[in-house]
Design a protein around this nucleic acid. Structure first.
Length: 468
RNA sequence: GGCGCCGUGGCGGAGUGGUUACGCAGAGCUCUGCAAAAGCUCGUACACCGGUUCGAACCCGGUCGGUGCCUCCA
């Protein structure tokens, strides 16, 4: 398995510390609002990562966090985080907001047929772990206190800019506003924030430094190390996390432990919609519900995600979703062939092609998760099977392959049901009518099936059905 | 202002020094009683200008265009 590693800026062979075990931490959602397609692109790609690791004989231990506190709305240090703000917007408490969108997220994962992480820890369930991490940093002299919180002093961590290759001096010269004057360095970030004096937060906890809540970055370090140890094998997330969030995670984790935080860093690029990034101000935060409302299944979305490489800035549009829908239909029709019972089979040749398909899909994925190339592998066998005007493959030749592909791509090709006995009877009856050249009856039966969503394609020795 | 990325046929999208993936859409043809989401064929793409090379979409330089980050962001 090879993976592009943001740390080394090259494609590296993945070598876990304790193979076949491999630890994976992926940054999860901040649960303050509905997730948009862009979020799901990243999560689906991470799902493919886990699936590929498994198919490669590894045993991933996967943690995805739920950020339900401490993600500040801005760096203006006004003491408000997204959860608290979401609560005000919806007239609920931050706890209610977190609960609602956490459930929304988990349901979405299921609906997209994503694998379940081994742990899905909430930041609010790990306040003590975060406090302890901050204490460790404090003891080592990496922190300082201001009027609104405890901060990490990035100047104490010389490698701070290395990961993202930041030019801190140049960045400082930028047109940045709202620089907290109490911060010693521009890049310093809050580890613990004090509750505001003028109003009570929904979420706050006591700490050695005073009542407040943890800074956003500290949760990922605390929870990943708690569940997976001080050095992770793979840490993944959105590409936007490189310069700030992951940079800070490395700074605080490595300062605390003195060990390398993660061996491999995988980052999913962002998508654009009509050439623009997804942003509240553009109003293009399309949700799963929007997609379904336009008549596309979430399986179509998954296929569409697979159609581009995770490191390229992919484009999302309704047009490409429509194309993905057609492509999925072709895959479905092919998968449905395993239920067809007719004629001449060519098992040896087919077995070989299925084997080839399994091999090329897996190796494409193992080559830095090249999903578009993996999908290309299907064409040869689909074309071949259409071409020889097949055949009763009847499960036995494809079952193993379809399940294998499903494990890798999550497309559920093996789960597609057969048509009913009655529908099969109609097909048989129509065949008899055709043999008798009773076209009127034959066409009537075909229409009957069409009304049930079943189309027919005649071949020399019978008919192949497909779902319309 | 600083740091990046990207420009591939109607749309999407791999690839990356020499054999011009692939999907969707479109056109023509074939098979068919009629059909078909079946088969075959077709459009001969890689922003532009230079350079390196026997050979460049692929390497180098420049130009133009787009876009991302530096503020929260998957």
């Amino acid at each position: 398995m090879r993976l592009y590693n943001t740390l080394t800026r090259q494609i590296d062979e993945v070598v876990p510390q304790n193979a076949p075990d491999i630890t994976v931490y992926t940054c999860g959602p901040t649960v303050y609002d509905y997730l948009h397609v862009g979020n799901w692109f990243t999560y689906i790609r991470e799902d493919i990562l886990i699936r590929t690791l498994k198919a490669s004989g590894l045993k991933p231990k996967w943690v995805m966090n739920i950020t339900d506190v401490g993600h500040l709305v801005s760096d203006a240090d006004d003491g408000e985080d997204k959860l608290e703000k979401g609560a005000r917007r919806e007239g609920k408490t931050a706890w209610d907001v977190a609960k609602f969108y956490t459930e929304y997220f988990e349901k979405g994962m299921e609906r997209l047929n994503m694998l379940k992480p081994d742990f899905l820890p909430r930041a609010t369930d790990h306040i003590q772990d975060q406090i302890e991490l901050v204490q460790k940093l404090e003891a080592k002299g990496f922190t300082y206190k201001t009027s609104d919180g405890v901060y990490y002093d990035t100047s104490k961590f010389p490698k701070y800019a290395d990961f993202a290759r930041l030019d801190l001096d140049e960045q400082e010269a930028g047109k940045r506003v709202n620089f907290n004057p109490e911060k010693r360095n521009k890049a310093d970030f809050a580890l613990w924030k004090f509750s505001p004096k003028d109003h009570q937060r929904d979420m706050e906890w006591d700490s050695p430094w005073g009542k407040g809540f943890p800074g956003w970055h500290v949760e990922c370090s605390a929870m990943s190390m708690k569940y997976l140890g001080e050095t992770l094998d793979i840490h993944a997330g959105g590409i936007d996390h490189v310069p700030v969030h992951h940079t800070n995670e490395i700074a605080q984790s490595e300062a605390a432990t003195g060990k390398q935080f993660a061996t491999y860093w995988m980052h999913s690029n962002h998508i654009t919609i009509e050439g623009k990034k997804i942003s509240k101000s553009f109003g293009n935060g399309i949700t799963l519900e929007d997609i379904e409302a336009k008549g596309y299944s979430l399986e179509v979305l998954r296929l569409h995600v697979l159609e581009s490489h995770y490191r390229s800035q992919s484009k999302f549009s309704w047009e490409s979703l429509a194309a993905a829908k057609n492509r999925l239909n072709v895959l479905h029709a092919w998968a449905d062939l395993r239920h067809q019972t007719s004629v001449d089979v060519m098992p040896d040749e087919l077995d070989l092609l299925f084997k080839e398909l399994r091999g090329s899909v897996l190796s494409a994925l193992q080559d830095d998760l090249n999903t578009p190339v993996a999908l290309v592998s299907f064409n040869k066998i689909i074309n071949y099977m259409s071409n020889i005007q097949i055949p009763g493959v009847e499960g036995k030749y494809t079952d193993g392959t379809l399940a294998f592909l499903d494990d890798l791509l999550g497309l559920q090709l093996s789960a597609r049901p057969d048509i009913t006995y009655q529908q099969k009877e109609i097909i048989t009856e129509r065949e008899q009518a055709r043999t008798a050249q009773d076209w009127a009856k034959s066409d009537k039966l075909r229409e009957q099936l069409e009304k049930q969503g079943i189309g027919l394609r005649d071949i020399p020795n019978g008919a192949i059905w497909f779902r319309l």
